[in-house]
Design a protein around this nucleic acid. Structure first.
Length: 814
RNA sequence: GCCCGGGUGGCGAAAUGGCAAACGCAGGGGACUUAAAAUCCCCAGGGGGCGACCCCGUGCGGGUUCGAGUCCCGCCCCGGGCACCA
């Protein structure tokens, strides 16, 4: 006789048991070479911080894991690898802070992370783990650099970089928060001119933008990226000086050229020296010095009063022929367009403000239907819908869009205009004057110049360096290690010097997905056969905080590799979904705010399965939300109910089972399978869980039999994998539930037999009628008219109009 | 300023133009218990009515429709992205 007191659900022992079994049986291993229906389920690999995983990480990984498990149960050969993004300034800064060398710190953190990730029950195939800090990995990061270098996509040039005077080092863009240093929130970041390596991603701007239109990506992610690429269509116009200098400006509003009453050049503009007259020289030089000493924040704030200096020169407005003064001002930026603008104070707020300060003339050139040609008292909106030109001889009365094209065409005949497209996307600066990264594989030789390290000499191993602190010299700490950087030139054999900069962490992560399937190969970066089979990535799930940097760089590197014939696809990710952000008390979790929630205690107390489901039940996966733990017991109660049901079946037929399968329960089962399938597919995990809860609540009122429970065990498997395994086993299932087939539903059974039809009178609900599915309009209307509750509102008159929605509602209009 | 999301009970939320609030948390009442916990049953947007029932209700104001949380127009607020970008 079975024990009369069934053992309750004990998550800890269930989870220990199944994790051990998965290891023993190799449940989570994927046969990469033999897979016939490959599905690459990718999630953003973590940076192994010292604090360990936080709840946000778990939320992200669990959601991706559910997707992978679902695809596997639905019949795919799912590959779900994980790795660690352990190079970079975050790790290095933390190492500096605690005074431990990153080479010692990082492996410890990784170990801790791996243990936590295993504990939450991810279906990861750990045989293919990658670590960006492993020479076997970064050998190929360096190799990719070399491929781009050979293709002319990696170039070295002088550029302004972020410099933190407190850290005494260059910072990556992502270390600069609102113009301040991440580690020194009260220290403003300066600009310094240094020789830097760039990837010329800007050449790919149009392609990167074009592919976004059709990409199967979260809408939000696509919008963010398109914004960042920042395409703007316009024209370059030429303003010539009497001395024969041609000043080219970029404008998106060529139609307003008749209102261009002066020019402004960025203070750094190369023509400034030539244009400056003797009497203006000292003013111009003073101003340029002042601007170059300024930090990025104070230069780029819009609210600041306009300043600038006249160069003393004039240039000819190509449309009006008038001589307009040429100024320099810091509100014009050298990095965008041509570094020079035509100022149209009548229709641009900034230009208006500047003109007002400097007492420069202002003209209206676009006006509404009233064709008001008066001088504006403030910058007038230039893109009013039916705006037409005024004060523009030859073009007056023309709609502004059309006028823009016409004016550009006319000026183009005289060689004074070219239609151009500008992008906000700048080239990617990849060099870092830091220690903790892959050395850039370049050797400088007095005779041969810049020489790439031969591929056979890769990797250029990052040398052990006890004191890796950055200094004030503007070069990497590696420049202190002469024994390392002094090497013979690979071409001529004479003594040369290694590049001492390392590459940006974002390069490490721009290609890791290519590496996973080939992670066990030392002879190549990515094996062509495996790459063709497993890539592009089938599904990528990650946070929108990487919408521009990581996701853009990964797309660029893939495109570049494609153009070099190294991969057969242009886009790395077939499908991308952004998960929401988990916040705490209304703010992003961060150590400095002290609101980081550690998942360990929850996993300890409730078990991984309950915690997984709870996080997914919190709200829509793609929206995220505020973390709170109120309600986690609701999930536990749900699992306990399932446990009890399974136990009732598993304990055996104490009462003879006449197999009393309630047809309504069978129908509900089909309906539940349908809902869970569709909702899991679309990442609507919260509603999938709700559907399972409804099903379980109904089962408890009926008679639970194995045939109603086994499908539930499979539906649960993506969400609560250990628990589902245990149920599956107790219900007599063979092997792992993960090798079962996702249950199918019969659409004919997935609907109820009886429906409750709503009866409205004049759009207000007045009654509900139980009806068999498929009842005809005539039947329903007759029944409705016979209903006393309806009769009170129809007042005995025949309806003027009847709206009938089969199986849902009838609306009687009287 | 421009570009995306979003705004629904006490709370998290759900709802192909068709019963607003499914599912869950917290709460109230009851059963079981010596008691508590656990479990089970019932109630639960606001207002009115003894009651059957009725009225109101998805940020605000209009509109389309037999019917609007959902579509359209104009606002307000919150979150995110871009930003002296010409």
């Amino acid at each position: 006789m079975p024990n009369s007191e069934p053992a309750g659900y004990d998550p800890q022992s269930v989870e220990r048991k199944w994790q051990r079994r998965w290891d023993e049986r190799g449940t989570n291993r994927t046969d990469l070479a033999g897979a016939t229906r490959p599905y690459f389920n990718l999630m953003m690999f973590p940076y192994p911080s010292a604090e360990g995983l936080h709840v946000g990480n778990v939320f992200a990984f669990v959601g991706a894991d559910i997707h992978g498990r679902f695809r596997r149960l639905a019949g795919s050969d799912v590959f779900e690898p994980l790795g660690f993004d352990a190079f970079g300034i975050h790790s290095e800064n933390f190492a500096l802070k605690v005074g431990t060398h990153p080479a010692e710190l990082i492996p410890r953190n990784i170990e801790r992370f791996r243990a936590q990730l295993k504990r939450i029950g991810l279906m990861a195939d750990w045989r293919y783990e990658v670590q960006t800090t492993d020479p076997r990995y970064y050998k190929w990061t360096q190799w990719i650099f070399l491929q781009l270098y050979r293709a002319g996509l990696a170039v070295k040039r002088r550029a302004a970089v972020n410099w933190c005077p407190a850290c005494k080092t260059v910072l990556a863009n992502e270390q600069v928060i609102g113009g301040f240093c991440e580690r020194h929130p009260d220290v403003r970041v300066e600009q310094r001119m240094l020789d830097q390596w760039f990837f010329t991603i800007s050449r790919y701007a149009q392609r990167l933008l074009d592919h976004l239109e059709t990409a199967d990506w979260s809408h939000s992610t696509r919008t963010i990226q398109a914004n960042w690429i920042g395409r703007s269509e316009g024209a370059e116009l030429v303003f010539a000086t009497p001395a024969g200098k041609r000043i080219t400006v970029f404008t998106t509003r060529a139609d307003t050229v008749f209102g261009a009453t002066y020019l402004v050049l960025a203070p750094e503009h190369p023509l400034v020296a030539d244009l400056t007259t003797a009497e203006q020289r000292s003013d111009v030089q003073t101003y340029r010095r002042k601007v170059s000493a300024m930090d990025l924040v104070s230069r780029k704030v819009g609210e600041k009063a306009k300043t600038g200096v006249f160069t003393g020169s004039y240039a000819r407005n190509p449309a009006t022929g008038a001589a307009v003064p040429v100024w320099i001002a810091d509100y014009v930026l050298m990095e965008y367009g041509t570094g020079a603008i035509m100022a149209v104070p009548g229709h641009d707020e900034r230009d208006f403000e500047f003109a007002a300060t400097m007492r420069l003339p202002c003209v209206r050139v676009v006006a509404g239907p009233a064709q008001d040609a008066s001088t504006p008292l403030a910058a007038a909106e230039p893109d009013i819908p039916d705006g037409r030109l005024v004060n523009s001889p030859g073009f007056d009365g023309m709609p502004w869009r059309e006028a823009g094209r016409a004016i550009t065409a006319k000026l183009a005949e005289a060689g004074l205009a070219t239609p151009v497209v500008n992008f906000r996307l700048h080239d990617w600066c990849i060099s870092r004057q830091r220690y903790w990264g892959p050395p850039i594989p370049i050797i400088y030789c007095d005779g041969c110049g810049t020489v790439p390290v031969p591929e056979k000499d890769l990797p250029v191993v990052l040398p052990a360096l006890e004191d890796f602190r950055p200094d004030d010299s503007g070069v990497s700490p590696l420049a202190r290690l002469e024994s390392w950087y002094r090497v013979p030139c690979p071409q001529c054999g004479k003594m040369g010097r290694r590049e001492t900069d390392v590459s940006d962490t974002f390069l490490d992560s721009a290609w890791y997905f290519l590496r996973y399937p080939s992670a066990d190969r030392d002879d190549l970066a990515f094996e062509p056969g495996l790459t063709r089979r497993w890539l592009p990535v089938s599904s990528y799930i990650g946070g929108n905080e990487h919408a521009v940097l990581h996701l853009m760089y990964a797309r660029f590197i893939t495109m570049a590799l494609h153009d070099l014939g190294l991969v057969p696809f242009e886009e790395p990710f077939r499908r991308f979904r952004a998960h929401g952000t988990i916040i705490k008390d209304g703010a992003k979790m961060s150590k400095s705010r002290g609101n980081v929630v550690n998942p360990d205690a929850y996993v300890e107390r409730w078990g991984a399965d309950t915690f997984r489901m709870y996080l997914m039940f919190l709200g829509p996966y793609q929206e995220g939300g505020d973390f709170r733990d109120a309600g986690i017991n609701g999930i536990r109660r749900f699992l306990d109910k399932v446990w009890t049901l399974v136990d009732g079946v598993a304990v055996g037929p104490q009462t003879p089972s006449p197999n009393p399968q309630d047809p309504a329960l069978v129908r509900l089962m089909h309906r539940t399978i349908q809902r869970v399938t569709e909702d899991t597919e679309s990442l609507s995990y919260n509603t999938a869980i709700a559907a399972m809860m409804e099903y379980v609540n109904a089962l408890r009122d009926g008679v639970a039999v194995g045939s109603l429970l086994s499908p539930l065990a499979i539906l649960l498997a993506p969400y609560a994998p250990h628990f589902a395994e245990e149920c599956w086993e107790r219900l007599g299932g063979k092997g792992s539930v993960m090798d079962a087939a996702w249950p199918r539903f019969d659409p004919a059974l997935a609907v109820a037999e009886q429906v409750e039809l709503v009866v409205q009178v004049n759009g207000k609900v007045r009654s509900r009628l139980p009806m068999p599915r498929g009842a005809t309009e005539a039947t329903v209307v007759n029944a409705a008219l016979a209903d006393p509750a309806v009769q009170r509102f129809t007042a005995g008159t025949a309806p003027r109009k009847v709206v009938f929605v089969p199986d849902r509602l009838v609306n009687l209009v009287v």
